[in-house]
């Protein structure tokens, strides 16, 4: 039964990683957040057939992982875990877009395959960047940084609650799955059982939400979550944002691999 409770949602491990003390960890969360947002915007702003121009962007997650001493293998596994979403988004491109973009001998590569690859590369870059951000900062600090840079509080509060109760919810779901599997002898859960389980989980969640709301009201909640935490703007943070943003801009404007390729082929 480690399926749900154990492997998929061991996000708690991320907090343990985020408690480290490297130059990356010590950096102002707002700086990391802003740089990551700039990175994501730059990566997704390319046109749909871009692949080579995206390659230089790998330097950002690689730099973060090596500077922060983050476990690359663990993060990679997490990225692979969510990759089906990206694959689903792009899987029909090769069928819809059959225009030949590239020809190597008798081998034709259609535009669909190129854009599919582009989607995968972008997915890989952005998700890795987001995960390294959380792994070097901690989810909560990211939330506080979101508030500080002006993201509306209701969104951030939603995120905080999602993170807090994800563990409780998965626990509850795992217990339910265990209870069902102990009473299921022919293996597998029937659709009807599954539907009723999800329904129950929803009802329990609503109940819990009501109790949490009550607990919050008891302690004077008035719709505004106040968090005590000051963040100081430091030189290191500002430099971090500026340097990376400039680099992203250069990568965005110039296709570095193409230029390097041009230089090399010109040379020979």
């Amino acid at each position: 039964m480690t399926g749900i409770g154990g492997r998929l949602f061991d996000i708690g491990h991320m907090d343990a990683i985020a408690a480290g003390n490297s130059p990356m960890h010590r950096l102002d969360p707002r700086a990391k957040l802003t740089a990551t947002l700039a990175f994501i915007v730059a990566v997704v702003s390319f046109d749909k057939y871009a692949i080579s121009a995206l390659i230089p962007f790998f330097i950002f997650p690689i730099a973060q992982i090596s500077l922060g001493g983050l476990p690359a293998g663990y993060l990679f596994k997490k990225v692979i875990l969510v990759s089906p979403f990206a694959v689903l988004i792009g899987i029909f491109n090769p069928m819809l877009d059959r225009e030949v973009l590239l020809q190597i001998g008798s081998f034709h590569v259609s535009g669909g395959w190129v854009s599919f690859c582009s989607i995968l590369v972008r997915f890989f870059l952005t998700v890795t960047a987001a995960l390294t951000l959380i792994a070097s900062t901690g989810f909560h600090a990211v939330c506080v940084a979101l508030v500080k840079i002006g993201v509306p509080r209701p969104f951030v509060v939603q995120l905080m609650f999602l993170y807090r109760y994800l563990f409780v919810l998965t626990d509850e779901a795992a217990r339910m799955v265990r209870a069902v599997s102990l009473k299921t002898f022919n293996g597998g859960v029937r659709f009807k059982t599954f539907a009723s389980m999800t329904g129950h989980l929803l009802l329990r969640t609503l109940d819990r939400a009501q109790r949490i709301h009550m607990a919050m009201r008891c302690r004077g909640f008035d719709g505004r979550i106040r968090v005590l935490r000051s963040m100081e703007v430091g030189w290191s943070g500002a430099m971090f944002v500026v340097c990376w943003s400039v680099l992203f801009l250069i990568f965005r404007i110039y296709n570095i691999p193409k230029i390097i390729g041009g230089i090399i082929t010109g040379f020979f």
Binding site: F139, M160, R164, Y165, M216, G220, V227
Partner: peptide, 16 residues
């Protein structure tokens, strides 16, 4: 319901 023990205990007093 807050992310850390500190924030949780501080929740009420901050609201006051």
């Amino acid at each position: 319901f807050m992310p850390t023990v500190f924030d949780d205990v501080a929740f009420g007093p901050l609201n006051l």
